[in-house]
């Protein structure tokens, strides 16, 4: 499945997403590319009623998810009643059309 690429510091093991040229913790420059695990838990969320130009919908649920392998990332939640700490399963779908092109990103459903 398509997904994001996260980065694990080869010196201190810190897992980062998105990419940094130097580790946020130890400033080392070598990273192992990793992918998030299949599932994670919801750390926080918001239901956005006023979306920016180019997204013709209301009530988009955005959430921050911590995957089981430590990767943290934001994504679009397809969940009726989000709850803090709930288990989620990751997907990959079109999240926005920018300049006529479909842009893909992380989506989540209840696990």
């Amino acid at each position: 499945m398509n997904t994001i690429t996260a980065y694990k510091c080869k010196q201190c093991g810190l897992v980062m997403y998105p990419h940094h040229f130097r580790c946020l913790k130890c400033h080392a420059r070598e990273f192992e590319e990793i992918t998030p695990s299949e599932k994670g838990k919801l750390l926080t969320y918001t239901i956005v009623e006023q979306l920016p130009w180019g997204i013709d919908e209301r009530g988009r649920v955005l959430g921050v998810v911590e995957f089981d392998n430590g990767v943290k990332a934001l994504g679009v939640l397809h969940v009726e009643n989000p709850k803090m700490g709930m288990k989620l399963k990751a997907g990959w779908d079109c999240v926005r059309v920018i300049g006529g092109e479909e842009v893909y990103g992380l989506t989540f459903q209840a696990a």
Binding site: I4, Y17, P18, V48, L51, L74, G75, V76, V103, L106
Partner: peptide, 8 residues
């Protein structure tokens, strides 16, 4: 990591 999702 943020903008594409419609973050404001």
């Amino acid at each position: 990591a943020e903008y594409i999702y419609g973050v404001t």
